[in-house]
Design a protein around this nucleic acid. Sequence first.
DNA 1: TACTAAACTAACCAACTAGTCCAACAAGGG
DNA 2: CCCTTGTTGGACTAGTTGGTTAGTTTAGTA
Lengths: 222, 222
Amino acid sequence: MAEKPAIRDAIRTQEKILAAAQAEFARRGYDGARVDAIVTRAKVSKNLLYHYFRGKEDLYIRILERTYETLRRRQSDVPVNGLDPLNAMIRLCENTFRVFVEEPDVIVMLNTENLHRARHLAKSTIIRSMYDRLSENLREILQAGEEQGVFRKGVDPVELYISISALGYFYLSNRHTLSMLFNRKLSAPENIEHRQAHLVDMVISYLTREPQPGDWTPELAR
Amino acid sequence: MAEKPAIRDAIRTQEKILAAAQAEFARRGYDGARVDAIVTRAKVSKNLLYHYFRGKEDLYIRILERTYETLRRRQSDVPVNGLDPLNAMIRLCENTFRVFVEEPDVIVMLNTENLHRARHLAKSTIIRSMYDRLSENLREILQAGEEQGVFRKGVDPVELYISISALGYFYLSNRHTLSMLFNRKLSAPENIEHRQAHLVDMVISYLTREPQPGDWTPELAR
DNA sequence: TACTAAACTAACCAACTAGTCCAACAAGGG
DNA sequence: CCCTTGTTGGACTAGTTGGTTAGTTTAGTA
């Protein structure tokens, strides 16, 4: 902000390349991305890319790491502590959804990485360490809610986190096909808002409903 | 069945090519898929592929159409009619999830198509016509449940369908990264079963809970 | 048996793609 | 002024990739 757009700034240049790489990978996926397209986007010569980075895969892993950093930072930069369990949970839901809405690149990166069966994620020790705190955090909220009698008992934190993510993620990641099939523009702001409310509604309904035995047959033993 | 594995059988050969193409596209996505890999998988010469199909994209669209056919057929081949709303809904949830579990290619194909922003889907009129009945069907179940006082009022069928899909789809499509981050093998059969029960639990909890005003602040107007 | 259409193949091609090499230029600090 | 560091340009390669050409084999039929 205070600095001029310096002509020769190694860090800034690398940042430009990374930004271009992110845009390209998030647009086309790993196999669809073109190194030439990245250097063009970054307005940088090809040599420079190979000067600062080992190559396409190296660049991809960097972007993947940044993706998870963004995800975790934005999920946890909320003062969830200090709130009562119900409002903490609502906040957590809204935050998770908001990240996906405001950082759409995240979704494509995660999809791409899953297409590759988490091959690159396996190589990155940094990312895996970021998820230790999450389920712990979630467990605390759940336990507090349980003790206060507002949440049902025995909720699995991981399963719940997956559900919270799922309700927003799928809506956004599959919005192109869904919009076409249901003739409804899912990315319209009012629909996004509506989805957020629906997400919160579902999660809280689930948590605040005491499951009655014999309520509905589990149907597992068919 | 009655026929021998005929040496020269045009239809059978095309089927072999399509099967190989599906395997390849579902494994690597559109850009990662290789035409050479398809002909090798199909044990067929390359030009035969170009004899029967226009090219890679044509083949891809064929597979995409088959994907949606499978999806819709397997979702609706259940006798949902005749059941009470609650059990009909449970069946619908289980079916939707089961398709994703048993036809994992579907997930990758849909992800791939969304990466390409439904570009190919837009070209296929056949697929779009398959989704007219779905939301109608869902609306009927919801209305019946509403009238019998077992479901809450004013549920949006499309929003609900997206949620039902989401809870299973995301779990499976992102299982590679999630398994690694949470140190839990999501594709283990017992976990799959567990997820199915959780999915049904969430959906039914949502539907059977009458939302109380002031229950939790919508938090939309911050 | 001669002929034909369809089924099928091997070899090839032109375009593309990730990555390299080398020579040079530009800016700023000492 | 020089030296380090940042940066560009262009030509190049080795391997891939989607797609084509030119031709062979097989089954059915008259």
